[in-house]
Design a protein around this nucleic acid. Structure first.
Lengths: 254, 254
DNA sequence: GTTTAAATTTAAGCATTCCTAACAAAAAAG
DNA sequence: CTTTTTTGTTAGGAATGCTTAAATTTAAAC
């Protein structure tokens, strides 16, 4: 029901609160920065969304999503992540291409259509970046505890379970060095000097800054939990491959 | 590049000109009625679109699309019709459900994504209503001459080749009486009194008013031309079926 | 505990896109 | 060929969502 702009604000507030974990009140500045708009615009919109019942706003303090706001935000997140999975697993886009497309599509998708997509994809639980997909009632799937790169021990092997897709540039870099969901990595060493980490990916070593590493989350290799992604992704991928191999000749246009 | 609203105006102007065939200047009133906005809003927008180079406007006369306007309009039509085909043939929506969804999606789809969808669908040439899909350069596929119901002769058999989806209510009615693309019909009789036509569809007779019949276009049965649709649609349908039957167990969420 | 700095809100203004009502031009009717 | 009707345009106004600049409140520094 809200406009595209209102949906973007609600989504941003959800995402910021989600990252902040405990401290769940979100500030005007954080929202303004995430959406790349002025603080004044954010302040105005926060008031409008509060009047509409989506937010609880304490002047000069911050905002929290109401139940209705949370429901709406989770619905937008759901649309976004289902589209992302569709784009990678059915149309074959790469994980660094899907965010921007899903950002547009999420605002133009009815609940009816999302249910059809969800069904078609086999009720997936995670998007191509490893982020959870809320179900139609706003419930998030159970997630095993993930380790940020900074918490991974040297000498041990892990599998990539989640990537924060804040920066397209960073995503492109990750793709370039062979990182992808479920890829196995070995933590070679960590430099105390700048807290950077050397990772071995497919036999090649790469040094990742602390900041870059904070976008990567792992599960220990041999932890069965990592299958929680791949069961969905491999299934959908297979369907797409069957589809594409089934192309009958003579179906292309004049 | 244009906004959603501008895209809607350009699309409407294209569609009206397309229906009017010869007389290709489009009036303010026609556009206002199609988009369900005031004539004043249309008049304003026409001036803005003219300044932007999409329209040639002669005051108090009407508008024509410029080359740039035509290119843009065909691109929007392309996005709309490709989404419609995707929705029916991949997600399994019915032909009367897809128009409204495509109306939203068309404004949120990059050229990049449309090319991926086009490729996935096998470069289809017609949408689920039998309307032609422009290719990426704005070229329309060749279409055999179609007969509106009023030109179909009594006692002869035809196949439905195209439906104008102006009214959702009418589309639902057509669906209810068994009409679908490529369905075979027998023209039983025509009443001179009101120019209504009695059609036999799947063994049952239905009387269609002249106005309703003007939304239906046919090819004579035994005219090989009718395959020009089905070759695309059956192919895509097959791919979707293979997909859905391939659902591996245990892929649904927690 | 003032003073200074940072964050937040208000104010004024602009671009879009719509509306209704008033006005102007063109077409149809007599 | 004037008069009426229809169609098209302009004027004034409202809602949304953004901007910059000026206040205001809170937090930090000394």
């Amino acid at each position: 029901m809200p406009t595209i702009s209102k949906e973007d604000y609600l989504k941003a507030i959800y995402r910021i609160a989600d990252e902040n974990e405990k401290e769940s009140t979100v500030t005007t500045s954080e929202v303004a920065e995430m959406l790349d708009v002025s603080k004044a615009a954010t302040s105005e919109m926060v008031q409008r969304l509060s009047e509409l019942g989506y937010l609880n706003h304490e002047r000069y303090k911050g905002v929290k999503l109401t139940d209705e706001g949370m429901r709406t935000a989770l619905n937008i997140i759901r649309r976004h992540r289902i589209w992302e999975l569709f784009l990678t697993d059915v149309l074959g886009l790469s994980w660094n291409e899907v965010h921007a497309e899903a950002e547009l599509l999420e605002h133009s998708t009815s609940d009816f259509l999302i249910e059809k997509l969800d069904e078609f994809l086999g009720h997936p639980r995670f998007n191509p970046h490893g982020e959870p997909i809320p179900d139609r009632n706003g419930n998030l799937p159970e997630q095993p505890a993930l380790l940020p790169l900074s918490c991974c021990e040297t000498g041990k092997e892990y599998r990539l379970a989640k990537v924060l897709d804040d920066s397209l540039e960073l995503m492109n870099y990750f793709t370039g060095i062979g990182l992808a969901l479920n890829v196995k990595v070995l933590v070679k060493s960590r430099l105390d000097y700048d807290n950077s980490t050397v990772l071995c990916i497919n036999g090649t070593n790469h040094n990742l800054s602390e900041k870059a590493g904070n976008n990567l989350f792992f599960l220990p290799e041999n932890d069965e939990g990592y299958f929680y992604h791949s069961r969905v992704h491999q299934g959908a991928r297979k369907k797409a491959e069957v589809k594409n191999s089934k192309k009958s000749p003579g179906r292309t246009g004049a």
